[in-house]
Write a protein that binds this DNA or RNA. Structure first.
Length: 555
RNA sequence: GCGCCUGUAGCUCAGUCGGAUAGAGCAACGGCCUUCUAAGCCGUGGGUCGCAGGUUCGAAUCCUGCCAGGCGUACCA
C-alpha cells in the first residue's frame, strides 16, 4: 500500500510538470510512512518538504499543486490534507485495505517473504561455544538470535547456511584434558593438586568417572601426555554431543559443524599464512609473525604465529574465514558475544586482506544475559563452575518462552531474563500473549467447522466488503506491516523486530476479539470475519515460526 | 589513556532514511466475563529523550565536547 501511494505521488509530480504547474519533475528523497498519530491519516509523506528546494516553492504551496494532480483511479483515498509545515496526509477508504486479505491468503506461508537477497548465499555462524563445558544462558541468546536471523534472511530471499565452529584445537582443549585427567587421577586414589586455571565444574568429575569406568586405572600406567590427550578428546567429544543435544532441544539445527583442528590437518592454516606472507601482509618481527592488519583499518598489527612457533587463534580464524568464502558465500555473518567486539577490526582486516570486500562480513554482537529469579540475580561464575545451563533453563521455562524472551530486546542491549516471569502465564509474559492469539483463532475456526459447517475459509469479495469496523481495518493494517518488518529485520540483522511486530499484531487482535464476535448471526459478516482472523492466524504462525516458537492450537 | 556499546515515563524497553503533539508493556488507580478461551480488553495519571553547544524549515535520531555505566584494549580464546 505504501508503495502504491509512493507511485501515485511520483505520477502526480510528473503530471504537474507536464501541465506546467512545476518547472521540473524532480523530487527529493521523500518517505511515505504510517504516522504515529491516527489523526494524521493512514499514510503521510514529506515529499513537499524535501522537494521544496528543487521547485523553489513553499512546501505547503507545492503540496497543494501535487494534490490537484493526484490521480486515484482505484478510489482508494477517502480524503487528503495538508498539515503542519507541508505534510500530505492520506486517509484511505476501508475498502482500500481489503485486497490485502486476499493477498495474504493467496501467499500463504510465503506472505511477508521477498527476494531482496536475490538467492545470494549467506552463511550465519553462531553459538560456536568451545567444547569445554555445557552451554549456558548466554549461548542460548546467541542461538536464538543466530537461528532467527538465519530464518529471516531465508524469508528475505537469501540462501542461508547455519554453521557451528568447533574450537577443538589449542590450549583450551589441552586444559580440558588436563582437568579431566587430574580428576581421573584423584578418582584412582592419587593425591593431586587441582590448579585454579583448570575447569572447575562438576561435569569434569562426571567425565573423569566415565573414563575410569571404561579404562580403570590403565591411563595412569602409560605416558602422561598421551593420557591427557586421550582425556581431552574423550571429554570434548562427549561435551560436544551434549551441546548438540541441548541445541536440538532448543530447536536449533546446524547445516554444518566445522572443526578448527581440521583446518590444521588439511594444511589450510599454513596455506593461508603462506599466501599472506607471499604478498607481504604477514611479516616477521621479534621472532614472531605478524599480520599487517593496520593496512586495513586495525589499530595495530596482530600476531599470527607466536615466538614459540604456535599459531594463534587469529591464524586459524583467518584460514577459517577464507575457507568460508571459498565455499561461495557472498556474505558471512558471525554471531559473537559482545566481549569479543575488539576482535572485529582485525577479523575484518584479515578478510579484506584475503580479497573480500569488508561489507561481505558482518558481526552480530550479542550482549549479556542477566539471569534473575523473581527479580533477584542468580549467581553465576564460570570460573567456579557455577552456572545455570541452557538445558536447565529450557527444562524449567520451556523452549518457546526461552526463545521468545531472548528476542525481546535489541541484541546489543543487555537482557534481564527472569525465570519466574518466563513461566508466568499472564500478560507480563509476551510469549503467551502472542501464542494466545493463535489459540483463540484456532478455537474460532474449530467452532466454525463444528457448529456452522464452515470447513475451508474461502475468499468472498462481498463478505470481505463488510469488514468496516475500525478494529478490523487496524488488524489489516497491522498485518500489512509484516513484509517490511521482515525486510528491515533482514537488512539490519535485527531479529527482535519480528518479535515486536508480533506483539503489536497480537494487541490489535485481542482488542478486536474483545469488541466483536466473529461468528455472528449475519452469515455474510461472519464469513468476512472468518476470512480476516484466518489471515491473522496465518501471519502469527509464520512470525512465530521465524522465531522458532510454536503456534499452539489450544492453550 | 584510547576504542566500542548503552543512557528515552517510577521499572523494563521500542522508535527504519532527520519529521508533526516522543510510543508500548509493567507497576498505580478505575471499569469489563450468561456471549467464539479473562493466558484477554477498555480508561486515567505519568517525560529536561544523560548534560551543553552546533548543523536546519525541523533533532531522541546527524556533528563536537562533557557526565555515568558496561565491555574491550595479549605472542588468551
Amino acid at each position: 500500500m505504501k508503495q502504491v501511494i509512493r507511485e501515485m505521488i511520483g505520477a502526480a509530480v510528473a503530471r504537474a510538470h507536464q501541465a506546467g504547474a512545476l518547472s521540473n519533475d524532480l523530487t527529493g528523497d521523500f518517505v511515505v510512512e504510517a504516522p504515529k498519530l491516527d489523526n494524521h491519516g493512514d499514510f503521510a509523506t514529506n515529499v513537499a518538504l524535501v522537494s521544496a528546494k528543487q521547485h523553489r516553492m513553499a512546501p505547503r504551496r507545492l503540496a497543494e499543486i501535487l494534490l490537484t494532480h493526484l490521480e486515484d483511479s482505484a478510489h482508494r483515498i477517502e480524503r487528503t490534507e495538508i498539515a503542519g509545515p507541508g505534510f500530505i496526509n492520506f486517509f484511505l477508504r476501508p475498502t482500500a485495505w481489503h485486497p490485502l486479505l486476499a493477498d495474504i491468503h493467496r501467499a500463504g506461508g510465503s506472505y511477508g517473504a521477498s527476494d531482496a537477497g536475490a538467492g545470494r548465499r549467506v552463511q550465519v555462524e553462531f553459538v560456536s561455544a568451545n567444547p569445554t563445558g555445557p552451554l549456558h544462558v548466554g549461548h542460548g541468546r546467541g542461538a536464538a538470535v543466530g537461528d532467527t536471523t538465519a530464518n529471516i534472511l531465508d524469508a528475505a530471499g537469501y540462501r542461508v547456511q547455519r554453521e557451528y565452529y568447533i574450537n577443538d584445537s589449542g590450549r583450551q582443549i589441552r586444559t580440558l584434558g588436563l582437568s579431566v585427567y587430574l580428576r581421573y587421577a584423584a578418582l584412582c586414589g592419587r593425591t593431586i593438586e587441582f590448579p585454579e586455571d583448570c575447569y572447575q565444574g562438576d561435569y569434569i568429575r562426571d567425565l573423569a568417572a566415565q573414563i575410569r569406568q571404561e579404562k580403570g586405572d590403565a591411563l595412569l600406567e602409560g605416558d602422561e601426555a598421551e593420557a591427557v590427550d586421550y582425556c581431552a578428546r574423550h571429554a570434548a567429544g562427549s561435551i560436544l554431543e551434549g551441546i548438540r543435544k541441548d541445541l536440538e532441544d532448543f530447536g536449533v539445527q546446524f547445516d554444518r559443524w566445522y572443526s578448527e583442528q581440521s583446518l590444521f590437518d588439511e594444511g589450510r592454516v599454513e596455506a593461508a599464512l603462506d599466501d599472506l606472507r607471499r604478498r607481504g601482509i604477514v611479516y616477521e618481527k621479534d621472532g614472531a609473525q605478524w599480520c599487517r592488519t593496520t593496512d586495513y583499518g586495525d589499530e595495530k598489527d596482530r600476531v599470527v604465529v607466536r615466538q614459540n612457533g604456535l599459531a594463534t587463534y587469529f591464524a586459524s580464524d583467518i584460514a577459517y574465514h577464507r575457507e568460508k568464502y571459498s565455499r561461495g558465500f557472498d556474505r558471512v555473518i558471525d554471531v559473537w558475544g559482545a566481549d569479543h567486539h575488539g576482535y572485529i577490526p582485525r577479523m575484518t582486516a584479515a578478510i579484506e586482506a584475503s580479497g573480500q570486500r569488508r561489507d561481505q562480513f558482518q558481526v552480530i554482537l550479542v550482549h549479556l544475559v542477566n539471569l534473575l529469579r523473581g527479580g533477584q540475580p542468580v549467581a553465576m561464575s564460570t570460573r567456579a563452575g557455577e552456572f545455570v545451563t541452557l538445558a536447565e533453563v529450557v527444562a524449567e521455562v520451556g523452549r518457546d518462552a526461552a526463545r521468545f524472551i531472548f528476542l525481546t530486546r535489541h541484541h546489543e542491549s543487555a537482557l534481564d531474563f527472569d525465570l519466574e516471569l518466563a513461566k508466568q502465564k499472564t500478560n507480563d509474559n509476551p510469549v503467551y500473549y502472542v501464542q494466545y492469539v493463535h489459540a483463540r483463532i484456532a478455537s474460532i475456526l474449530r467452532k466454525a467447522a463444528e457448529e456452522h459447517g464452515v470447513g475451508e475459509v474461502l475468499f468472498d469479495p462481498e463478505a470481505v466488503a463488510s469488514l468496516t469496523e475500525t478494529e478490523e481495518i487496524a488488524l489489516i493494517k497491522a498485518m500489512a506491516a509484516f513484509p517490511e518488518t521482515i525486510a528491515t529485520a533482514a537488512a539490519n540483522l535485527e531479529p527482535h523486530r519480528v518479535t515486536f511486530f508480533l506483539m503489536d499484531l497480537a494487541a490489535a487482535f485481542h482488542a478486536y476479539y474483545n469488541r466483536h464476535r466473529v461468528l455472528t448471526e449475519d452469515p455474510l459478516l461472519a464469513r468476512g470475519r472468518l476470512f480476516l482472523v484466518a489471515a491473522v492466524r496465518q501471519v502469527i504462525a509464520r512470525g512465530l515460526g521465524l522465531l522458532g516458537v510454536s503456534a499452539p492450537e489450544r492453550m
